[in-house]
Design a protein around this nucleic acid. Structure first.
Lengths: 341, 341
DNA sequence: CCAGATGAGTAGAACGTTCTACTAATGATG
DNA sequence: CATCATTAGTAGAACGTTCTACTCATCTGG
């Protein structure tokens, strides 16, 4: 109640004095070392409570040459996929003493090195990174070589030897396509995403694969690339709808694109889910709010974050262990955007 | 290229040796102190580059009794409003050496004290907090009294004397209501949000105010409260639609509720934007993706974060300055959910 | 009764900075 | 030429922990 704010921070030494022991003993108590008798432990804990002691983790970190902070580098927190992944990271860290330093790159590589530098200065015990677009594998490997436990997420560096967790994009493409084929569609477009983006390459590969398996020819005219913005999605859609033989269904590169496609359809007087089928890829909760509710392939953003956190934690414990490669299996969430049958 | 990873971290002392100066001098160079001659400065900077020195901010923080980390306590990062606010905080911190420790409370008060404790242990130079539901003003005041620069966001503590930035909820309610009145609606519902939530109280007050100014009677039956979930929104809607004299328009407590209301309308065979008008409150980007695109009152989440960061930064510089109270003026974004006229 | 093992705790040097109070050298002033 | 400023840099004690290598007791077995 009426505690007086101490002028000087209360330290382990104050506790030691109050409890009549040495600072070393207090430290051992804090670490729950069992070498200390129950009696002394109680005395120390009593003093801790009484003096309102607060553990100074940065002093400990300095001494131990570690840090109980995890750096989390992502593209953009406003993107629901990354927001969910971030929540997953927090979940994976729950119950530990780790806290996350969140930084955004805006997918700019120079900004990425700046923020990484800043993380290093602040001191991090581990790093989870969604690498910005043109990130060189060496950048990631140098971090790992420098001794920082690192886990790369979502964007697989071509062959950097680091822990990784991400989705099976090819399978995601296949699942989306197969679903549409099973619904009876023959002309299926794949819209949005940049041609050079590895995840798009994989998704498109899966799309082609599913087409092929169904004995369905791949038509390059139905596969159009663009930066995944709303406006681009709509113009991509118009492109394929103006074809002599237009598609009856489309896969959006991601949920955002897919939702924009539904808007674009309506502008052309086509009702999504009735006259045209749309499926997205991502599976963030925004897909559920769309109208019609978006059928999508879930990439498990939350789980990705959770696993990434676990991998980093494991590597902090055992820096020498062999690198893990966690590929999350996507799965289809059927809602209303391909019709209800 | 072929740098050898140093076994021991390279410190200010190594630099001092390499440059033939004292550690103090190196420190002064790092701080850009002008007492050091250009010549020595160059020698030191040369050595820094050569040895690949990395500044250890936690050692500095320990010595200086500060921290260059800002704690950011929010409810849930997956909520687009908080995601945008978080991005705003990052924006406000840009160009400084501060990094943000992001933590979520899930709106649980015990979790809030746990994470705050953890932030304290890790060491923070300032705190931005969206207080969990039942937070007592004393909790916030105690933090401020403890010397931590704090800025409260969105949820105004009844009368805690701390920096604050948040929206004018009453005005938001008034704006939404006035818009509907101007469109000719007379029976307007206010749906969702918990009765005891201060922001709902204010929004409803604004709603009543606008009604009154228009000479329009307030009908308690049209104002229904519930936890702002999708399912609740829909059942709230059904409640008012089943009234003998049903409304022709509704204000959702927030965008999420409003979007759910549109789904609910369609289940009743009513087309939002044509047979019934909906307006939301929040103005996050998800409102734009909804169909029909949601007319909403923007509460400026990004700006809130940015201003909060600025306030904290200012208070770090001048701990004694008088507390600021920044109230952001909401504004209407007209889209399609109230019809296009 | 002694050697050694075990138990409970401590001294004190780190960790990498910063910062106050110094010093030594040079320059200006009367 | 003594005195005082100014300039450019330094010594060394902090900051709050941790952890290795001790020190005493007390216990155990032969």
């Amino acid at each position: 109640m009426n505690e007086i704010a101490p002028l000087r921070r209360v330290t382990i030494i104050d506790i030691a004095k109050a409890a009549g022991v040495s600072p070393s003993t207090v430290s051992l108590v804090l670490q729950k070392n069992e070498r200390i008798s129950a009696e002394t432990r109680n005395r120390v804990e009593e003093a801790i409570r009484k003096l309102g002691y607060k553990y100074n983790r940065s002093a400990a970190n300095l001494r131990r040459q570690t840090s109980q902070a995890i750096g989390l580098i992502i593209n953009d927190i406003c993107n629901p996929f990354f927001a969910e992944m971030t929540a997953g990271v927090q979940k994976g860290l729950e119950g530990t003493e780790f806290l996350v330093f969140l930084v955004e790159t805006g997918d700019e590589i120079e900004r990425q090195s700046r923020v990484y530098q800043s993380l290093e200065e602040h001191g991090i015990g581990g790093l989870i990174i969604f690498p910005a677009s043109q990130t060189k594998p060496e950048f990631l490997e140098r971090i790992a070589a420098g001794g920082t436990p690192i886990c790369v997420a979502i964007r697989r560096p071509p062959d950097a030897d680091v822990d990784y967790v991400g989705p099976d994009n090819r399978l995601a493409g296949r699942i989306a396509t197969r679903h549409l084929i099973e619904l009876g569609h023959r002309r299926i477009a794949f819209l949005g995403g940049e041609a050079k983006s590895p995840s798009r390459i994989d998704r498109v590969a899966g799309y082609q694969e599913a087409l092929q398996r169904a004995g369905n020819a791949f038509d390059p005219a139905l596969c159009v690339e663009s930066r995944p913005t709303r406006a681009n999605a709509i113009s991509d859609l118009n492109k394929v709808l103006d074809l002599p033989e237009p598609p009856t269904a489309a896969i959006g590169y991601n949920d955002n694109v897919a939702i924009a496609l539904m808007h674009g359809l309506r502008r052309r007087g086509l009702e999504p889910g009735r006259q045209f089928a749309i499926v997205g890829i991502d599976g963030t909760s925004e897909a559920e709010l769309a109208y019609p509710a978006l059928t999508t392939v879930a990439l498990h953003a939350h789980e990705t974050g959770r696993r990434a956190a676990e991998l980093v934690l494991e590597r902090i414990k055992a820096p020498g262990k062999t690198h893990e490669n966690v590929i999350l299996r996507p799965n289809l969430i059927v809602r209303a955007s391909c019709g209800t049958r």
